[in-house]
Simulated assay, not measured.
Amino acid sequence: MTMTKSITVKITGGVQGVWFRGWTRQEAERLGLEGWVRNEADGSVAACLSGPVARVDEMVALLHMGPPAARVDLVEVYPSPAPKTKGFVVLR
């Protein structure tokens, strides 16, 4: 049995307008994760990630780097219920 976990992350820095959400969806789908990603009003990006523990942890490590044009200052991780979405979606 594979252990799974669900988390919500908040990524701050230069993360809007640099293809962060599209890149996050692409990487999450590659890792087989479910969840969502969205821009927040404060300029951060939020994401819910759910799947096998090792894959979720790998995605968090990737979020610390972000896509080439991004500048990631901080990644905050919080426990979260599993997303109600199927697959991985960009919300806004």
Rank of each mutant, 00 (worst) to 15 (best):
V75I: 00
W19L: 05
R92T: 13
W36Y: 09
I7N: 01
A46T: 06
Y78L: 14
K5M: 09
K86Q: 15
G87A: 11
W19G: 11
S50F: 08
G32Y: 03
T24E: 04
Q26L: 12
L74C: 13
K86Y: 13
P81F: 10
N39L: 07
G35I: 09
L62D: 09
L74H: 14
K10L: 09
Q26I: 03
Q26A: 13
V75M: 03
Q16L: 02
E34V: 11
R92G: 15
P67R: 12
G22S: 02
G66E: 08
T24V: 08
L31M: 00
M3W: 09
S50L: 07
A70C: 10
A61D: 15
L31Y: 05
V75N: 07
V77F: 05
T12V: 01
A70L: 10
R92D: 15
V15N: 06
R92C: 12
V90I: 15
G51D: 06
G13D: 00
R92F: 14
A54D: 15
R30V: 05
M65N: 14
V45L: 04
L74D: 14
G51F: 02
G32R: 00
L63P: 08
V89C: 10
A82Y: 06
P81D: 14
R71G: 15
M65S: 15
V60L: 04
V60M: 08
L91N: 07
G32H: 09
A47G: 03
V15F: 02
G13Y: 03
T2F: 12
G51T: 04
D57A: 12
Y78G: 03
T8F: 01
G43T: 04
M65C: 14
G35F: 06
E27M: 07
P79V: 09
W36C: 01
V60A: 08
P83Y: 12
S80R: 09
S44T: 07
S80Q: 12
I7W: 01
A41K: 11
K86T: 15
G22C: 00
P52W: 06
A70N: 10
E34D: 13
M1K: 10
Q26H: 13
A61T: 12
S80G: 12
A46V: 07
P81R: 12
L91C: 05
E58H: 07
A54E: 15
T85R: 12
I7A: 02
L62Q: 12
G35W: 04
E76C: 05
S6H: 00
W23V: 06
V18Y: 05
E40A: 04
V75S: 04
A61V: 12
K84S: 14
T85Q: 14
V90S: 08
W19V: 00
R55S: 15
M3C: 11
F88N: 06
T24F: 01
D57R: 07
K84Q: 15
P68T: 14
L62G: 09
H64P: 08
R25T: 07
P79F: 10
G43C: 02
W23G: 08
E27T: 01
T8H: 08
V45P: 00
T12P: 05
G87Q: 06
G66A: 07
R55F: 11
G22R: 05
V72S: 11
G66N: 09
Y78I: 05
A47D: 00
D42W: 06
L91G: 02
D57Y: 00
K84E: 15
K86E: 15
